[in-house]
């Protein structure tokens, strides 16, 4: 193949690939992840928008988790156990005009060594609390939900990692029998102490 023909082939490939990025990706929905650092607390949050499901993760300090559960009157064993996890406030919203559903059991967090881990579900927490004689069943993100038009929800997501750990979160949802999966990289667990900030 001569040089001119090779160059033409590369031009066609270049234009095709750029056109694919330009035209096709917007049609299937692009998830844009932004990190925001709160000027009030110095804590980070990550928000993915532009999909059928808006997804937001907010760092929560271990002390705040303790305060939440202590003020609900829950026993120290419950408070200590939950606050030993890396906890995030999680906000989900159906942005479309059709229902969609999610299942936390399908989500995974991926540690820097590449290992995929399942996330402890609300049902598992509630079952543990029930065994302790505690009937509390709120605060954790529900295991699964179907969001109709305009529906949204929130709750804690618990990751079995130490404060300050880094990981990637893979989450998914199903709409019209099609499952979509996204990943938020470089998520960080809240530190033990409030971070320094302006």
């Amino acid at each position: 193949m001569n040089a001119a023909l090779l160059m033409k082939a590369r031009v066609v490939l270049l234009v095709s690939l750029v056109a694919a990025v330009w035209l096709v990706l917007p049609a299937v929905g692009i998830s844009a992840v932004t990190e925001h650092v709160s000027p009030d607390t110095g804590l980070s949050s990550w928000k993915s928008e532009g999909d059928a499901l808006d997804f937001e993760l907010l760092q929560v300090l271990p002390d705040y988790v303790r305060a939440v559960y202590t003020s609900r009157g829950l026993p120290k064993t419950v408070v200590d156990k939950v606050s030993s996890y890396c906890v995030f406030g999680t906000i989900l919203r159906n942005t479309t005009e059709r229902p969609l559903s999610y299942r936390v059991a399908d989500w995974r967090y991926i540690t820097p060594d590449g290992v995929r881990h399942r996330i402890r579900t609300k049902s598992e927490w509630v079952a543990e609390w029930r065994d302790m004689g505690v009937a509390f069943r709120w605060s954790m993100l529900p295991d699964d939900q179907t969001f109709a038009v305009g529906d949204w929800g929130q709750g804690f997501t618990t990751i079995a990692l130490q404060p300050g750990s880094r990981f990637a979160l893979e989450y998914s949802w199903t709409q019209d029998d099609k499952t979509e999966t996204r990943m938020i990289e470089e998520v960080r667990c809240a530190p033990v102490e409030p971070p320094d900030h302006d």
Binding site: V33, E35, R182
Partner: peptide, 15 residues
């Protein structure tokens, strides 16, 4: 600040 964006189906997702 933008971090990253990934769009793909469950079957093709690779970390």
């Amino acid at each position: 600040r933008p971090l990253n964006r990934l769009t793909m189906t469950r079957d093709s997702l690779i970390y």
